[in-house]
Amino acid sequence: MSDETQDNKHAPNVTRRRFLTALVTVSGAAVAGTIVVPMVKSLDPTAAAAALATTTIDLNPIEPGMQMVALWQEKPVIVVNRTPEMLATLDETAQKGLLKDPNCNVPQQPPYCKNKYRSRVPEWYVGIKICNHLCCIPHYRPKKASVAPWWLGGFHCPCHGSMYDLSARVIKGSPAPHNMAVPEYDIDVEKKSVVVTKMYPLAHLC
């Protein structure tokens, strides 16, 4: 372009401009991406948080019929050592038709816990002790008739009266919609230890 006219009238090469604008836009978006992607990534859980992500619970102090609560990722994890009598109540609640979801069809637990015990090993129940109605912490009420005359043992929420059996399956008439959540865990019965690894992603906490 070397025309020496005084006015600014000359035909701009529109195609070339559009093409270059597109190139600048695309590469500019990529540059923005190199800044934005790490920025969003930096809000992921930190390595320090990941180091606290698993919890090992020692089962030795838990005697038959007793329970223990451990704090895991700011949530209470309950471990119950169930006696044969307690395990027998699980069939009873189901047969009496007391339960909303006796067969655990709602994925509130990992597939390996989709059974009436809702656990890897029948005696040891491991679960998140949070009522999925409005996030309260239910009480452990193992004694028969301790909550109602027909009570066979289970969990009772102090906030709105939700009731669960000893596998934390919700009882009909409770405001809570689902069974209590079970996290993913590994259990070593010989070494008597449970390692809670992560939350089961499909489970509703509350």
Partner: peptide, 18 residues
């Protein structure tokens, strides 16, 4: 790469400026 594209875009537009 972005800088090169931006340079050519700038050159193209500044052809208008006499």
């Amino acid at each position: 790469l972005f800088t090169i594209f931006a340079y050519f875009l700038k050159k193209e537009y500044w052809k208008d400026v006499k």
